[in-house]
């Protein structure tokens, strides 16, 4: 991230090759990883915090958000999994994106920490704000410049903000890239995201069944509903893109388009799901 303006403090520390991981970003490291939060392990959540967490969870269940599903961990109310399905009319459409969240012991006075889990084992950068190491760059999470966390936020607003990162032209999420410079970047980036969504956020997810079981049920049901979209997308883009190299304007995602292979995987999954052997 960072970009030409070099104003953003967030550093993609696990992946030094990331855009603009410049020497200018030697700022104090911001803790963001719910799996690496020893500072939170020492402290028990206050009873106020637990009441508020329950309210937030209850609100997501009682007032469900389109395309957003959660699965709290049964033995720890501070941890939960979230599934966000890629919004319609975006290159993320039909994808199943998994996030792990953890509430701080002092909730809601500090923001939750969030890790993006659908990264193809740290190989795919799905968005300028969703790093390969799982960092989610969002101002209300304290990982991005702009309006910071306030206790009026809640789980629903955090999840909606993350969902809004997955928009029609994610290229522009990169600061300083509000305009295309060369005229091909938006399309090129969208082509990559669309392919990787099908490969990593659809095929890999269903083949590896790596999401929590409650979320896998949603994934399987949604897969069948998206099946027509998957087929038409593959038909539409395979002739133009197959066997060409990905041209990521940020130089991060690399690989060769292979919609034909994705087609085979999706057909196989569709068969398995129809006979409910998956």
């Amino acid at each position: 991230m960072a970009s030409s303006s070099k104003v953003t403090p967030a550093v993609d520390d696990n992946t030094p090759g990331e855009i603009g991981a410049t020497s200018a970003s030697i700022k104090e490291e911001i803790k963001w990883d719910p799996f690496q939060s020893p500072d939170w392990d020492l402290e028990k959540p206050t009873s106020d915090a637990i009441v508020r967490m329950k309210r937030d969870l209850h609100l997501v269940f009682s007032d469900p958000l389109p395309g957003i599903f959660i699965a709290p961990e049964s033995d720890d109310i501070t941890r939960l999994h979230a599934l966000i399905t890629g919004p319609f009319d975006t290159p993320y459409e039909g994808g199943f994106f998994h996030f792990m969240l953890r509430f701080p012991p002092s909730y809601p006075f500090h923001p939750p920490r969030v890790k993006f889990m659908t990264t193809g084992s740290g190989t795919v950068r799905f968005n300028p704000n969703l790093y390969r190491n799982g960092k989610v760059c969002l101002s209300i999470l304290g990982t991005w410049p702009g309006p910071q966390w306030a206790p009026a936020q809640n789980l629903s607003s955090v999840l909606m903000s993350i969902q809004s990162l997955m928009n029609e032209k994610p290229f522009h999420n990169e600061p300083g890239f509000h305009k295309e410079r060369l005229g091909w970047e938006v399309k090129s980036y969208n082509d990559i995201i669309r392919h990787e969504t099908l490969r990593v956020a659809v095929c890999d997810v269903l083949e590896r069944k790596s999401y929590p079981i409650e979320l896998m049920e949603v994934v399987k049901l949604s897969f069948m509903q998206f099946y027509e979209y998957y087929s038409s997308t593959i038909k539409k883009y395979a002739p133009e893109l197959d066997d060409t190299s990905m041209n990521d304007p940020f130089g991060i995602n690399k690989g060769t388009f292979n919609f034909k292979k994705l087609s085979q995987r999706i057909e196989k999954l569709q068969l398995a799901l129809s006979s409910s052997s998956l």
Binding site: D48, D56, P108
Partner: peptide, 14 residues
């Protein structure tokens, strides 16, 4: 209350 989300007719969680 926008912070604790409990009703004003009650009291804060503490």
């Amino acid at each position: 209350c926008g912070i604790c989300r409990l009703p004003f007719d009650g009291c804060c969680p503490d």
